[in-house]
């Protein structure tokens, strides 16, 4: 884990409110694993916003470019979208526990709800070529966000299906509906489910995976003040059979095996 000041190489709008940012870091490129995250601070001496924000590592591009995919949802991400090439940001990472990759005979099924797409590109990058070609990715948005976003991940060669709630592109409905139909109809052998998105969506995916007795990993989001396991802010309730009451998203996650989470409390 390192703290580094980096210069933004690019920061471009990919959809209505979705941005892709890149900066160069040899150290992070060599350390980072899919599913891990960074704590980002925009301006060195700014006290508002005060606290760093966690961002999944979206992937690693050529020349040790660290990619961050984000949605402008509040003041911090709005300010982040205003940063330009050569602006400096401070990053701490890589943090947390990432995804456990599928075994050689297992198929990967990736399910992303909205910004849940953030860690999936890196996960797809890390799959061996054969597994990647056979991997399925289900992405859902409330409305179509533009082709650029989808083309980027399609470029990795996996099978991509898109759902929009308003029917503006692809399957009309939620990504959960799309996933449930697909997994019933045409599941790969021994699929491992990787899901990231809103808690309500993850709960449904986890329940479906549980009913089918499939291995399922979820990447969770939480408020957190430090990302380092110090503030103890990012607590999530552990399932009743676990030997702890709470897990911490920054240290124990952000990727969790779905069965150890108390989905009713989330």
């Amino acid at each position: 884990m390192i703290e580094e000041s980096v210069f933004i190489e690019f920061n471009r709008q990919m959809g209505n409110d979705i941005w892709l940012m890149g900066f160069r870091s040899e150290a992070l490129a060599s350390l980072a694993k899919p599913g891990q995250f960074l704590m980002i601070r925009i301006q060195g001496n700014s006290q508002d916003p005060l606290i760093r924000r966690p961002f999944s590592i979206h992937g690693i591009g050529e020349g040790n470019i660290i990619l961050i995919l984000y949605q402008t949802v509040g003041r911090f991400t709005s300010l982040l979208s205003l940063t330009r090439n050569h602006d400096q940001i401070s990053v701490i990472g890589p943090l947390g526990k990432g995804f456990r990759l599928p075994g050689s005979k297992q198929g990967a099924v990736l399910v992303a709800g909205g910004m849940g797409l953030a860690p999936m590109y890196f996960l797809a990058q890390a799959l061996p070529p054969d597994a990647r070609r056979n991997a399925k990715l289900f992405i859902g948005f409330s409305t179509f966000q533009g082709a650029g976003l989808i083309d980027l991940i399609k470029g990795l060669g996996l099978q991509v299906s898109l759902a929009t709630e308003d029917g503006s592109m692809g399957f009309t409905g939620t990504v959960t509906d799309l996933f449930e139909q697909a997994i019933d109809r045409d599941a790969p052998e021994e699929p491992v489910i990787y899901a990231c998105g809103p808690h309500a969506m993850l709960k449904k995916i986890a329940q479906k995976a549980g009913r089918l007795n499939l291995t399922c990993y979820v990447s969770l989001e939480s408020y957190m003040a430090c990302g380092l396991g110090i503030c103890l802010g990012c607590a999530i309730r552990a399932a009743r059979n676990q030997d702890t009451e709470y897990y911490y998203v920054c240290k124990d996650g952000p990727v969790f095996s779905a069965e150890i989470i108390d989905w009713e409390a989330l």
């Binding site: 508002d48 916003p49 005060l50 939480s222 503030c231 802010g233 607590a235 309730r237 709470y246 409390a265």
Partner: peptide, 23 residues
């Protein structure tokens, strides 16, 4: 002590509000 149910932290202008609950 397990601490309080989440959310436990939120940022306010130039400040951090927490209710960790002495976990």
């Amino acid at each position: 002590m397990p601490g309080n149910p989440p959310p436990r932290t939120v940022e306010t202008p130039c400040g951090l509000l927490n209710s960790i609950g002495l976990a």
